[in-house]
């Protein structure tokens, strides 16, 4: 698309979003004891931040149409690696 056109509003929104989410994570998680809910919050914040950073800084907001073929398989494969290592190695120790 016409990524030459600066989109200052979105940039401001995304940067502020990442920063606020990052700083909010500190008091929020410091007050919580480890629990699935805490893990969920942290994962959710990471996910949001990564989406915002990708869309804003890496221009994926404009270029995702031409780049999905590079990005999607990589993330699927990364998920395979992450997921498939889990049960076996954990069971190995938990026996």
């Amino acid at each position: 698309m016409d990524e030459g056109k600066p989109d200052n509003q979105f940039t401001l929104f995304a940067t502020a979003g990442i920063l606020i989410l990052g700083t909010l994570m500190l008091p929020l998680t410091a007050t919580m004891s480890p629990s699935p809910a805490r893990l969920g919050i942290i994962s959710g914040v990471i996910f949001l931040q990564v989406i915002l950073a990708g869309a804003n800084f890496m221009h994926l907001r404009h270029e995702r149409r031409s780049l999905w073929a590079v990005i999607l398989p990589t993330f699927i494969l990364g998920g395979v690696l992450l997921f498939a290592l889990m049960p076996d190695t954990i069971l190995e120790w938990a026996k």
Partner: peptide, 12 residues
């Protein structure tokens, strides 16, 4: 750590 982890990474 985990000796088995090497096998997973290596064969991946």
């Amino acid at each position: 750590g985990m000796p088995l982890l090497w096998q997973h990474l290596f064969w991946f």
